[in-house]
């Protein structure tokens, strides 16, 4: 599966995502500049983490105006796989490809640590190789991961099984103490109704080799690859 990794001014996890899919998973991959509207026949697009445009106005707010995001939207409309990680998730929210918005972390500070997340939906291409209830160890690193959504939209999100990952304790229990940023319903990652666009705050590319402390993130990339083979 050919992966395209977007680069915005201020992206800083693009090399990490590229390394994970290209070197760890052995898939073809290409960087795509934000000014481009050509997705180069990629079968999956990764919107990587970082601080696009410094996040000075609002996380992801300026990146959504980039020419490449128009192409990504059309790609998603045709059913293409789009994975937004951290700042990439924030960009997908601002673009409207995913519902909801991000607030500052409940503790107001940047948080970088390993967390546990529970896989809630395995019927989408991103988690097909996982079992429901699997607990993954995976790092987060963000200042604005406090996901929010009005009550009614949240109900519909839950009804459609769009919550893909939730922060949980090591044993898989969803507790307030396991929530590192205050996000509603412990949401760590969500997908669109069709299941081809996923946004998540944790970084699967940072959990893709045993040396880094976890390789649970590999399941996600492998699931994506499997879904299109």
């Amino acid at each position: 599966m050919k992966f395209g990794v977007l680069i915005f001014p201020g992206s800083n996890c693009e090399h990490d995502a590229y390394h994970a899919v290209r070197k760890v998973l052995g898939q073809p991959a290409e960087f795509i500049w934000h000014q481009s509207t050509d997705l180069r026949d990629c079968q999956a697009i990764i919107v990587p983490g970082g601080f696009s445009y410094g996040d000075y106005l609002r996380t992801g707010a300026i990146a959504r105006f980039s020419p490449v995001m128009g192409a990504v939207r059309r790609f998603a409309d045709r059913g293409g796989l789009v994975l937004g990680i951290c700042n990439g998730f924030q960009i997908l929210l601002e673009t409207g490809l995913l519902p909801g918005a991000m607030l500052r972390n409940r503790g107001l500070k940047y948080v970088c640590q390993q967390v546990s997340i529970r896989v809630e939906n395995v019927r989408i291409p991103f988690t097909a190789l996982a079992r429901e209830g699997d607990v993954w160890t995976i790092p987060i690193g963000h200042m604005e991961g406090n996901y929010t959504l009005d009550a009614e939209s949240l109900r519909s999100l839950e009804r459609n099984r769009q919550v893909v990952f939730r922060y949980c304790a090591a044993d898989g229990e969803i507790t307030a103490g396991a929530n590192p940023n205050g996000s509603v319903a412990n949401v760590a990652g969500i997908c669109n109704a069709r299941g081809n666009v996923l946004g998540m705050m944790p970084h699967p590319e940072r959990a893709s080799e045993p040396l880094l402390g976890s390789e649970d993130g590999v399941r996600l990339f492998q699931s994506m690859i499997r879904s299109r083979s």
């Binding site: 609002r58 707010a61 300026i62 105006f65 929210l93 601002e94 918005a101 929010t148 959504l149």
Partner: peptide
């Protein structure tokens, strides 16, 4: 269109 996110 730019300065605010209408969701929040």
């Amino acid at each position: 269109d730019v300065l605010t996110n209408p969701v929040i």
